[in-house]
Nucleic acid binder design. Structure first.
Length: 161
DNA sequence: GCCAACGTTGGC
DNA sequence: GCCAACGTTGGC
């Protein structure tokens, strides 16, 4: 998908819970991006993330943290059903099928980066100075990435360190 | 395991 | 609607 409206995102996952390899090995290389319980992230999921958008798959709480691979959005925002299930860890009684509070998207693995880009290295890359991931105190698990940042990340992964 | 950052909750 | 308390994130 190469239409001009394509957007780019960075999504964080703890690899112990769900790594980029897990996405590659999932049925159809696809998974729900579920259980996000933060309003800013929710708004991105519900309103802005569309099929065809590019995703940088980031390993957080990892050793080392960094970007492992590329994924693609295959389904835009729809209600997060884990919020409806009283037995689910992320159950939220404020969310109902009639009036869903939380949303999720589906993403599919595209390919691993040629090489893993650690957070340490990302901080040194020219052109990524403004990346929200690198800003102090940033905790958003879904963040927009500019087209320039996307291209820079992909190009850097192709270069030897 | 620590703790800074910051989002959310709830009393007032 | 303020803001203190609390909980979570996530790098280190």
């Amino acid at each position: 998908v190469t239409d001009g409206n394509r957007r780019y995102w960075l999504m964080k996952s703890e690899p112990e819970t769900f790594s980029y390899d897990d996405l590659e090995n999932a049925p159809g290389k696809t998974t729900h991006w579920n259980s996000i319980r933060n309003f800013k992230a929710r708004n991105f999921l519900r309103d802005d993330i569309k099929p065809g958008d590019g995703v940088l798959f980031y390993h957080s709480n990892a050793d080392p943290p960094g970007i492992a691979g590329i994924a693609e959005v295959v389904r835009g925002g729809y209600p997060d059903h884990t919020a409806f299930d009283p037995n689910d860890e992320y159950y939220d009684p404020k969310s109902s099928k009639d009036n869903p509070l939380w949303y999720m998207v589906d993403i599919r693995a595209v390919r691993p980066l040629e090489r893993f880009l650690s957070l340490d290295e990302l901080r040194t890359i020219k052109g990524l100075e403004g990346m929200s991931l690198l800003k102090k105190g940033n905790r958003l698990s879904v963040q927009p990435v500019t087209a320039e940042e996307w291209e820079t990340v992909l190009a850097t992964a192709k270069q030897k360190r």
